[in-house]
Design a binder for these strands. Structure first.
Lengths: 231, 231
DNA sequence: CGTATGCTTGAGACGTATCAAGTTCGGTGG
DNA sequence: CCACCGAACTTGATACGTCTCAAGCATACG
């Protein structure tokens, strides 16, 4: 495998790096490292320290915490153009989540010094970072309210719609990510069996179609209604 | 009431403003506004736009979202020295939560332009902001995992310990904040009656003592054990 | 002092988790 | 290429935690 270059990276212009000068792009390129991860491989472990940020060049990643009983809680997903590990770097705390590839992924590592010099020297990059963090914080607050107040049925419908927004549908309305039933349960915050039962109800009601791990969204307005979303 | 001045504000040196120069402090002072709020008064409403950030000079504030059934979900608290409203300002999104005084509070308003010029001109302030945001994001992730995985009993114990850390205990081990049973329920994500029942169990087991809205923590190690906290 | 609001307790219903048992699927080696 | 094995998935029965509803009680306030 050859190292991907930032200047030819298709995701750069929609990422936090969109405003970098040619010189800055070259600096990042020169300092970064890069790795391939297969499905199931871990990029970093919750509790460890990080010395930089990871930028997804290709593939899909789940970020999760382990609860007190050892159960995974999926906090968010990252895909091409997204950065991960920045929270821990900027707060100078240990990583609050683990990152694992859910399909083959290419991930670059940008060392701390490089990130900090961009923050200091490139106001646009800095504002992009501030914006990303504060957007994520808003999303987290919504999730908190949902988990605290909505029943599993509504949360599962909402999760399907979130996956649609994050990974998009193909021509056949299939969500472009493959997750196990257990992983779905670990987003929704429920038991695997509950996910299975509710999915087959959604299927019976013709809101979705199931083909293995592929989920097709047949009736998004109805799913939205079931999810109890107004805003 | 007279407007409090930043240079005599007891909380400034432990806030995001700790690194401001004398000149910068004067600029903030000159541009800011200030208000008193009684318990129950709203500082800002979820969904609105904000044109600056709010800095707590005195008092205690709850930040909450309304769920789809109109139920409050308390997201976090703010006290003297804390800022609120920065998330919406920085993400250029509507306010994701409402802020309401839970005891008499004095709150200053610092306009957007002032905040942005500090971000641009004072790297220390900028890093403080980044750090605050990323710390909050880590806290939010923990809350998500707890809500998804822990039973109400554990979450209530954890909430009492969180309130202790946030508002501290007095000499009599009483948590220095008065919340209604309903507000406690709106932190934990449960029904008021469940909070009442579990509190009286904790009391029976001599972990806490109850005197109206005052809660005394008699056995913190045991509460920690019930909360199922390891880290 | 009366009234509204918050608090408390109990009974019952409901949602969701757990446990147990089959079934299907996907990958591996013969 | 097929048979096999383990993992993932599915379904059902049951148990349990938590919510809801209803009523009585305490408390604060005008």
């Amino acid at each position: 495998m050859e190292m991907p270059h930032c200047d030819t990276c298709g995701s750069r212009h929609k990422s936090v790096f969109c405003s970098l000068s040619e010189q800055e792009v070259n600096n990042v390129d020169a300092s970064k490292g890069c790795n391939i991860y297969d499905r199931g491989q871990v990029i970093f472990h919750e509790g460890n320290r990080t010395n930089g940020i990871y930028c997804i060049n290709k593939g899909k990643i789940k970020l999760f915490q382990l609860g007190s009983e050892g159960k995974e809680q999926i906090i968010r997903f990252a895909k091409a153009g997204d950065i991960i590990g920045y929270r821990a770097l900027l707060s100078e705390e240990p990583l609050s989540a683990s990152a694992e590839a859910i399909e083959e992924a290419v991930v670059c590592f940008i060392p701390k010094a490089q990130v900090f010099s961009l923050i200091t020297d490139n106001p646009n990059f800095n504002f992009k970072l501030l914006k990303t963090l504060s957007h994520e914080l808003g999303e987290a607050a919504k999730i908190i309210t949902d988990l605290a107040q909505k029943p599993v049925r509504e949360r599962l419908a909402e999760t399907l719609l979130m996956l649609k927004d994050t990974f998009e549908l193909n021509e056949e309305k299939t969500i472009q990510v493959k997750l196990s039933r257990e992983e779905l349960a670990n987003i929704v915050g429920t038991a695997t069996e509950s996910v299975i039962r509710l999915l087959s109800e959604f299927k019976k009601d013709e809101m979705i179609a199931l083909e293995g791990r592929n989920i097709r969204l047949l009736n998004i307005p109805e799913l939205t209604r079931v999810a109890n979303i107004f805003d």
